[in-house]
Computed example of a mutant assay.
Amino acid sequence: MLQSPLPCNNLIEQSEQHRSPYQHGRRQVRIPYFRSHPMKRPRSYQMSLSFFSQEWCDAAKAVVNANEEMQRGFDDPASFTNRMALGTLDRDDLITHVEWKAGQIVSWTPAQSYDDDLFLIVGAALPTWRECADGVSEGKKLLMAGRLKLVKGPLAAAISNADALNSFLRSWGQIDTDWNV
């Protein structure tokens, strides 16, 4: 920067370099980065999704469909096309319907009741679902122990796809879930 022979010009140039946070009587306010970008928020600022709510089902669908380990766990993923229900044994209002097509979830929604055209109905207590999501226990072991109940559907299908079931349930742990529903 060229120095001006006049001292007043130097003062103006220096004052422009070192501006005060107060300009023209207004205070400049910086918005934290995480407030301006919702996807960059710290985990403490994200809201937990209520278990089996529509928002939770949408997040679970994305996580499960991206799970390659689950795809490898299917006996025959191309033929895994059906509708199933997942519910809680202790509460009739926590039921979801999952529609599969060739081993991928195409629809996952909360339901009000069980339909007759469902291929599988699987139920468990709320703490059991959480235990599976946290990876504490495997779904196939809980199924054999009777804590994860196959209410409707062939047991052979559940056994042949047990590795996919484990990955399916374990992937729920990637969702920030509010289990107090």
Score class of each variant (00 low, 15 high):
Asn82Pro: 11
Asn82Ala: 12
Asn82Met: 15
Arg83Pro: 10
Arg83Leu: 06
Met84Asp: 08
Met84His: 09
Met84Pro: 12
Met84Gln: 06
Ala85Gly: 03
Ala85Lys: 02
Ala85Arg: 01
Ala85Leu: 13
Ala85His: 05
Leu86Met: 11
Leu86Gly: 04
Leu86Arg: 09
Leu86Lys: 08
Leu86Phe: 12
Leu86His: 00
Leu86Asp: 08
Gly87Asp: 13
Gly87Asn: 12
Gly87Val: 14
Gly87Glu: 08
Gly87Leu: 15
Gly87Met: 04
Thr88Gln: 15
Thr88Met: 08
Thr88Ser: 11
Leu89Lys: 07
Asp90Trp: 06
Asp90Thr: 15
Asp90Ser: 00
Arg91Thr: 06
Arg91Lys: 05
Asp92Arg: 04
Asp92Pro: 12
Asp92Asn: 14
Asp92Met: 13
Asp92Lys: 09
Asp92Ile: 06
Asp92Val: 04
Asp92Gly: 07
Asp93Trp: 11
Asp93Arg: 15
Asp93Pro: 11
Leu94Met: 12
Leu94Ser: 02
Leu94Gln: 10
Leu94Glu: 04
Leu94Asp: 14
Leu94Ile: 08
Leu94Pro: 07
Ile95Thr: 00
Ile95Asp: 09
Thr96Asp: 00
Thr96Gln: 10
Thr96Pro: 15
Thr96Ala: 10
His97Asn: 15
His97Glu: 11
His97Ser: 05
His97Asp: 08
His97Ile: 11
Val98Tyr: 14
Val98Arg: 09
Val98Asp: 01
Glu99Asn: 03
Glu99Arg: 03
Glu99Val: 05
Glu99Lys: 06
Trp100Gln: 05
Trp100Lys: 10
Lys101Trp: 09
Lys101Glu: 02
Lys101Val: 13
Gly103Asp: 07
Gly103Gln: 14
Gly103Pro: 06
Gly103Ile: 08
Gly103Trp: 10
Gln104Met: 01
Gln104Arg: 02
Gln104Tyr: 05
Gln104Phe: 04
Ile105Pro: 01
Ile105Ala: 04
Val106Asn: 03
Val106Pro: 03
Val106Ser: 05
Ser107Ala: 07
Ser107Glu: 02
Trp108Asn: 10
Trp108Asp: 11
Trp108Cys: 06
Thr109Asp: 02
Thr109Leu: 15
Thr109Glu: 06
Pro110Ser: 06
Pro110Gly: 00
Pro110Trp: 15
Pro110Thr: 06
Pro110Asn: 01
Pro110Val: 14
Ala111His: 01
Ala111Val: 02
Ala111Lys: 11
Ala111Ser: 10
Ala111Tyr: 03
Gln112Ile: 08
